[in-house]
Design a protein around this nucleic acid. Structure first.
Lengths: 219, 219
DNA sequence: TAAATTATTGACCCTTCGGTCAGTAATTTT
DNA sequence: AAAATTACTGACCGAAGGGTCAATAATTTA
């Protein structure tokens, strides 16, 4: 029982040096999000990418390098997009906050990438190298991004003079938690609620909480 | 190299049937919170409790039963306390919401137990039995508890007519995220912020978002 | 077509860990 | 003190999985 190959149609294996890395990171993203970091088997990643484990090691130094490649390829572009959005935005800060949060949700939260934060929070303690990598390349940048939005709102007299550092965390928490729910016990809890319904109430509460004038209807 | 025993002072082991279960669940809580569910070794749990792995199996059927015991012993009493608080509360709903959230933080979030939600979210997918156990015994009860507070506020004309289901998740998200940060990459992010500072801004934003009258200063 | 090159394989090594159980030692009973 | 009871131990088993590497097959070069 040697189960010779994986490809039913082509008994022989093909040599496709160019395509391998992308196929491997795609497969890895699927499995990392589904199983977590430690529980993902490199055998399975390789199999899903249509190669053997040995091939995986030809393109990546190991599990850690593979994971970093997944994050760099998937999350950093989304952050860059958010940064350029803020840099060139002309409207009021309420609209900007909406645009940034919705953008994060559209590019990360609603995609398979939305499972990465959960994985990081969960396994940071057991994999310090990955934790510091993610902290430096994603969390710091993301925090700075949101801080700039809040600070802009305060500077323009649109938001109250909140504690920016704390508020960034309060603003992003419901977004992160929706990603986390979606990738764990999502089953019944928020299952019946659409993204639209969730974020509508989220913005209503959050912007009422941030607005300087308590008279509402600033939009 | 047999490393005969663990206890340096008493070469002999003691028989303490009554004390073992509590010592084992205490050790297990420490390690589950520190390492996560899958990564916690029963050998280590036993060692921290001062017994051998064999002894652990005398008191618990295995890892899963041990974990359930930890949750039942640690989290369910806190939920019960919240329920009785709501049942007998006389003040306005804003105060009640504050009391319930602060209570959850005091009894769970700020304790080692605050590491449990992270573990559950992270490993629910890999351990369905634990996920459904936690969902039925903790999440449903907790959601119902918070729903009753929001509904009370709406019924008394203190809160806007928000979507209760969604709002429960929005209200608890920053609390859960603070637990999660504290037990993962807490390092720099919220490290400099006290619980008081965090929750002060949290209540300010959340209650402005919930209040019916937009004139502020309802407290 | 033959030789050289290189992408790919998968069996293998080694460690880890949940779970088992025959044996040992502490305690109680007689 | 001897016998009976039972709390406790730790060596062991089997499965799992990260990482290695000699062998093999596809492709390129001569």
């Amino acid at each position: 029982m040697t189960s010779p190959s994986r490809c039913a149609k082509k008994t022989t294996h093909r040599r496709r040096k160019e395509a391998r890395p992308g196929e491997l990171t795609a497969a890895a993203l699927d499995l990392f999000v589904e199983k977590g970091y430690a529980a993902t088997r490199l055998d399975d990643v390789a199999a899903r990418a249509g190669v053997s484990k040995g091939t995986l090691y030809l393109y990546f130094d190991g599990k850690e390098a593979l994971f970093k490649a997944v994050v760099r390829e998937g999350i950093l572009p989304a952050l860059a997009e958010g940064e350029s959005l803020v840099a060139g935005f002309a409207g009021n800060s309420e609209e900007l906050l909406r645009a940034v949060v919705i953008g994060i949700w559209r590019l990360i939260g609603s995609q398979r990438l939305g499972g990465i934060p959960k994985l990081i929070f969960a396994e940071a303690g057991n994999f310090p190298e990955i934790a510091s990598f993610y902290h430096e390349e994603v969390i710091q940048r993301g925090t700075t991004l949101l801080s700039s939005v809040i600070e802009r709102g305060i500077a323009r007299g649109e938001f109250r003079a909140v504690d920016v550092h704390v508020t960034v965390h309060l603003v992003i928490a419901p977004v992160l938690m929706r990603m986390i729910w979606r990738h764990s016990i999502d089953c019944c809890a928020i299952a019946g609620v659409t993204d639209e319904g969730y974020f509508a109430e989220y913005f209503e509460i959050m912007l009422r909480g941030l607005r300087k004038s308590p008279s509402g209807k600033a939009n």
